[in-house]
Amino acid sequence: MKKKSLTRRDFMRQSALAVVGVAAGLSSLTLVSQEQRSRVILIRQQGVLDENLKIDEKILQEMLDQAVMALCKQDDPDKAFQSIIRPDDVVGIKTNVWNYLPTPPELERAVKRRVLAAGVKEENIDINDREVLDRPVFQKATALINVRPLRTHYLAGISGCMKNYVTFAKNIPDYHPNTCEDLALLFGLPQVKGKTRLHVLSVLTPQFHAKGPHHFDRRYVWNYNGLLVGTDPVAVDAVALKLVTAKRLEVFGPRESRVMPYPRSIEAADIKHKLGTSDINKIDLVKLGWQEGILI
């Protein structure tokens, strides 16, 4: 039997859900979903950014450590990282160099510091974005750590954990059809499959609306001072979508709150590709640190 196409009316039928929940609770609209629960850590600290948006690297390191400790249920940052990274691992830290909102170097360094502390040799660590197919460490990587900022995206709806792996593709436009619905396929590529140990989505200054050829408009970036951390990229992206939707609701009101285009990739990664959990009701979101303006 042909699967029924999701329509706008399915959203209307979900009227019991709050507007904020509609976009985030995508898979509740469908019949089948991943059964296991996923865990996502949200940590925020007021002092991590100053008035000039300069990052306090020490606070950021503490945030990362606390988040990974909570995720791995360890009481020490080194133990937490040692539970996901072995000393003999070759580790590619997949960053994002997008000019307008790159992965903060302070965050790259924080991750690398812990990978080194886990016993990995310096020469077995690389940080890269657009040349990952050609870099020796990424070519022989046994472990990947995915580190990037959250933003809305003209084509995909949002640019989160899954979208960050698009540079592992030989032909990126292959992943653009149907508003990037099949981004989860990136996780089946030989250089990626089964290797990702951690996803760190920077929500220090997320972008909640995009405009212009480069998708950037500084009016739509806000200081949220946080990190989203998890091992399930679909769950992290689902929480990220909920956050962006909540911010849009706050700024634009109900009518414009939904992220457009509809971010099909999150639901498809769960239902179609079984990569992770998209249903916000099946995600254990652990909130640490600063609570003011948390939105979700």
Partner: peptide
């Protein structure tokens, strides 16, 4: 159309 007024997935 998806961007401005989502009607259906297909």
């Amino acid at each position: 159309l998806d961007k401005h007024y989502f009607v259906a997935q297909e």
